[in-house]
Computed example of a mutant assay.
Amino acid sequence: MKKQHFFLLFLLSGIFTYAQNKLFPQSFFDKKLAQEMLAIGTSNIEGVASTKQKTVYGYKAPLAKKQLAPEGTLVTLYPLTPYFEEFIKLRKQKENKKTLVYISDEAYKYRIETKTDAYGRFKFEKLKPGKYFIESILPYVGTYTYQQQTGTTTTYNGYGAAIASSPYYETFRSNYDASNRETKIVEIKSDGELLEIKL
């Protein structure tokens, strides 16, 4: 039974632990453009980060309750340059359990990081107008059900002799820890704008 539970947790985790292939965008990373897009401005992005439990098929359960990001969860903002546009497209088309898509070490340097508060809220300040890509890995607590034999039912004839028996099962619930990657593309259209989002 323990082996079955371990296998189920592996399926539910959604983490590509055994990925064998790594892909990177092939377009040129324009460092100067990234610097310009991340220059100091007068606009802010505020939001709340949350996620939902996934099914064994990798989809978010429609009726699952939203779980807010724990305090201190990292949220990262990148300038949406052509390099990152290719990265997002490549990830959607090619990423799976055997393949992961990465950005270069150089591109990773051009980012802004913040952390969520006790209510799952986060804030990026002093941004310029433009498009940005926001990403966070959000942990959550999932639940699953399983059946376990807890006894046996026996059928007797009219003389009190046992004529048949069958195992009796009960349904139990258990929790597991997992995480989802949440992303969003946003656009600040004017100086001084306060953009409110949900990640």
Rank of each mutant, 00 (worst) to 15 (best):
M1V: 05
K3I: 12
K3S: 13
Q4K: 13
F7Y: 08
L8M: 11
L9Q: 12
L12T: 05
S13T: 13
S13H: 10
I15P: 05
Y18I: 10
A19C: 09
Q20P: 00
N21F: 07
Q26L: 08
S27G: 05
L33A: 15
L33S: 14
A34M: 00
M37R: 09
M37K: 15
G41M: 01
G41I: 01
S43T: 04
I45E: 04
E46W: 05
G47V: 03
A49R: 06
K52T: 01
K54Y: 11
K54D: 09
K54Q: 15
V56D: 14
Y57M: 09
K60N: 10
A61M: 06
A61N: 09
A61G: 04
L63T: 05
L63P: 01
A64M: 09
K66G: 00
Q67V: 11
Q67I: 12
P70Y: 08
V75W: 06
V75K: 01
P79Q: 02
L80G: 02
F84Y: 15
F84G: 02
F84M: 07
E85C: 03
F87P: 04
F87Q: 04
I88S: 02
K89W: 01
E95I: 02
E95Q: 10
K97I: 01
L100E: 08
V101F: 04
Y102A: 07
I103R: 08
D105V: 09
D105S: 14
E106K: 15
E106M: 12
E106V: 15
Y110S: 08
I112S: 05
I112T: 03
E113S: 13
T116M: 10
D117S: 03
D117H: 05
Y119G: 03
F122E: 06
F124S: 01
E125A: 14
L127A: 04
K128M: 15
P129D: 09
K131A: 10
K131Y: 04
I134V: 10
E135S: 14
S136C: 11
S136M: 05
Y140S: 00
Y144M: 00
Y144E: 00
T145G: 00
T150A: 06
T150Q: 14
G151F: 10
T152F: 13
T153D: 15
T154C: 04
T155C: 03
G158K: 12
G158V: 09
G158Q: 09
Y159T: 10
G160H: 09
G160V: 02
A161F: 05
A162Y: 01
I163A: 07
P167I: 08
Y168P: 02
E170R: 15
E170P: 00
T171R: 12
S174D: 14
N175K: 13
D177A: 14
A178G: 06
T183D: 13
I185D: 00
S190N: 12
S190D: 04
E193F: 07
L195E: 02
K198S: 14
K198F: 03
L199M: 07
